[in-house]
Write a protein that binds this DNA or RNA. Structure first.
Lengths: 341, 341
DNA sequence: ATGAAAGCGCTAACAT
DNA sequence: ATGTTAGCGCTTTCAT
């Protein structure tokens, strides 16, 4: 029925041990034997039995290290629960997960953790801290030593990570534009708030939004793009000023940054509920903003799926040798309104 | 480390075979032995190793029957791919899936299939055909004989199915109301189109919509609820008339029924793009309607997740004995606009 | 009613 | 460089 290494061994006239070596590239095997085994395996369309592998591995489980920001950062809660859920489903499948929470304000600790994991013989790494040259170097070193790294939520560009699992930022900007258009009059004046336009990730959403507006026939008048540097006060002050200067402002797209600041500024100026707001994610203050009808839409990125997918990709790579189909795996994007909560 | 039946056997002073019998209720075991084993298992917090189970089962895999409408019905394509994906992940986990495509215009074939599956010793059934008394009886019989049935997409009410996996219809109606409110002026006149109000499932969305409008402070004026009986012409004719009679109609909620008819009626009356439309699902004509800006929003129900979840629930029930937490498992609901495609 | 032992497909330690 | 063998945890005959 199903092809086993035993069958391959018989056909090739070698032992199962040898087949195992060949199939898993463990030691040097005489090239001709190697070729023969490989040929037969391919011809028979051999696929390893995962349950058997898992069982055999259960003594020394495969180890995956997960490197992410400190547990206090609530944003990662759902991602973590996605990973845990995947781990639960992969339970008994021969893997062990080790979480490492590292400082996310500088790259040293994260880099250090990568190195330690590689040295200690980890079989794969899930990474989500920051994009930095030092990190890049370490990821590439890990790759050289055969330890695959999957980045999630926030990528490390140009590194040799196996795959990035996260949101399609550009698309999220376009969706935001579509939503804003649908709730405003033609030529309505809107503002974009972002963190820092020098950051690739921040720029992407803004660009997506602009493109989205174009695709809708230039239906909006983007009067300003505010950089709030992800700080509450900067964002708040600039928005207060903006609202004063533009009494005809009808929409704000919070691409990145403190939504709390936006809500407070609107309240302060008495324009809450009048100015349309589109933002991202589903933090507590955003949920409340939705309920109170201050925020019209928020675009969320299924963090649970993100964690799940990232782990799955690593698992499939290690256990079945299946490389991800693309270097980017974009997770679903959902639009939320109060009723969706 | 992890507790095995071997350990339980040792502690209880019996053989592993006996422990297996007890834990899986296979044959009669002397009650006192039974109690003892159970007590130790509970005390040790025993959890079976799925990989080992799978491997041991690989000779006679557990069989699940999947009963759904004919393959031609495109609506089920994505659900099927969700099931297949789940099956892929559960590959080597000791299950075999058998698909049965049955007539979905009358209950006989579906009922017959349930009976056959039960007789042939299937270990579980995934069902999605229709809600009917004959079906109900068969599902209950299956339950009596220890064959769990999970319904998906469309439930069989009041039957003894283990669980239903599908959309929260009432909520989808509320979300529709929220969306409609967000793109119309206060007191805008809107119409609801449904299939047949005598059907529970159809009523739910309509009720949800009404409730949603109330929650938004009665912001809409629902002038009529049209029953289109899921037929193109009925729907088309009624909408044409409605549009003529109400030149101030600003929104249509297609709760159930032919969205094509709605689009055509709007085109015919030259009101496409002027009248806001909210509907469900993502059939080809709806995608096109979105692109052409005739449809504003469509609410979709992640069919892939639906299939995946349904299979998972059955698997967990059979292999780990874990019953679903609730009788209903509601799948995610997503809002789509052109940009989300 | 219960125990003993073989086997599911694969890995790893030990031989040769 | 390759073969042999003993598990991994559970199920399932076959004895008793």
């Amino acid at each position: 029925m199903t092809v086993t290494i035993r069958e391959i061994a018989e056909r090739a006239g070698v032992s199962r041990g040898t087949v195992d070596r060949v199939l898993n590239g463990r030691e040097r095997v005489k090239p001709e034997v190697r070729e023969k085994v490989l040929a037969i395996a391919k011809q028979l369309n051999y696929v390893p039995n995962l349950a058997a592998k898992a069982l055999a591995f259960s003594k020394n489980p495969v180890r995956f290290g997960i490197i992410m920001p400190p547990e206090e950062i609530r944003f990662y809660d759902e991602i973590r629960s996605g990973i845990d859920e995947a781990a639960e489903e992969l339970k008994d499948l021969g893997i062990r997960l080790d979480y490492y929470y590292v400082d996310n304000t500088s790259p040293e600790e994260a880099a250090q953790t990568i190195r330690q994991l590689v040295q200690s013989g980890a079989n794969g790494i899930l990474f989500s801290v920051m994009d930095d040259q030092l990190i890049r170097t370490h990821i590439d070193q890990a790759a050289d030593l055969g330890v695959p790294v999957v980045t999630f939520n926030s990528d490390v560009e140009n590194s040799r990570r196996v795959c990035f699992v996260g949101q399609d930022l550009q698309k999220s900007g376009r969706v935001a534009a579509g939503l804003m258009c649908s709730v405003t009059k033609p030529q309505a004046k809107v503002a974009i708030v972002t963190g820092n336009l020098r950051f690739h990730a921040h720029r992407m959403r803004v660009e997506g939004f602009r493109q989205g507006v174009l695709e809708r026939g230039g239906q909006l008048d983007i009067i300003q793009t505010v950089e709030g540097f992800d700080r509450y006060t900067d964002t708040y002050n600039q928005l207060i000023q903006l609202l004063e200067e533009h009494t005809d402002l009808t929409g704000i797209y919070m691409a990145t940054g403190s939504v709390k600041a936006c809500i407070d500024a609107l309240r302060q100026s008495g324009r809450e509920g009048t100015v349309r707001v589109v933002c991202n994610d589903l933090l507590p203050e955003i949920q409340q903003g939705l309920q109170e009808r201050i925020i019209d839409f928020t675009i969320v990125q299924n963090p649970k799926q993100q964690g799940y997918r990232a782990l799955r990709i690593l698992y499939d790579l290690i256990f079945t040798g299946k490389h991800p189909e693309a270097k980017h795996y974009y997770t679903e994007m959902n639009i939320c309104i109060p009723e969706s909560l």
